[in-house]
Amino acid sequence: MGNTLPCMPKKGARGAARSASKRNSRSGRNTTSEEEMLHRQALSMVLQQHQLSQRFDGSMSRRIGSTSSRRKNLSENFSNGRQVAEFIGNIEIKKFVLVHGEGFGAWCWYKSISLLEESGLQPIALDLTGSGIDHTDTNGVATMAEYAKPLLDYLQSLPEDEKVILVGHSCGGASISYALEYYPKKISKAVFLSATMVSNGQRPFDVFSGELASAEVFMQESQLLSYGNGKDRSPTAFVFDKQYIKGLYFNNSPPKDIALAAVSMRPIPLKPIMEKLSLTPEKYGAVKRYFVQTLDDHMLSPDIQEKLVRENPPHGVYKIKGSDHCPFFSKPQSLHKILLEIAQLP
Rank of each mutant, 00 (worst) to 15 (best):
Q48I: 03
F218I: 05
L270C: 02
S194G: 13
S214Q: 07
A148N: 07
I176S: 00
E146F: 10
A148R: 02
F291A: 01
S19G: 15
S131C: 13
V164H: 01
E146W: 09
Y147K: 09
D241K: 04
R40N: 13
I124G: 00
E216S: 11
N312Y: 04
Q83I: 03
N251T: 04
Q48E: 12
G28Q: 14
T138A: 12
L115N: 05
N200M: 08
P6K: 08
Q333M: 13
E117S: 06
Y318V: 01
L212Y: 03
E92A: 09
I273H: 00
E35R: 12
S69Y: 05
K331S: 12
E311W: 12
V263L: 07
V317R: 08
A13I: 10
F208Q: 07
N139Y: 10
K276N: 10
A42T: 13
L345W: 08
E211F: 07
R40T: 14
N200A: 10
Y244W: 11
A125K: 01
E118D: 10
V97K: 06
E34D: 14
L121V: 07
V317L: 11
T129R: 11
F208R: 05
P313E: 08
I113N: 03
P6L: 10
R82H: 11
T294V: 04
D324M: 06
K94T: 05
K242P: 07
R203E: 12
F78G: 05
S25Q: 12
D257K: 06
T32P: 04
Q243Y: 09
K186L: 03
L98H: 03
G322L: 11
H169I: 00
I273L: 09
L121E: 04
P255G: 02
K163Y: 02
V309L: 14
R26G: 00
Y147D: 09
G120P: 02
P235E: 03
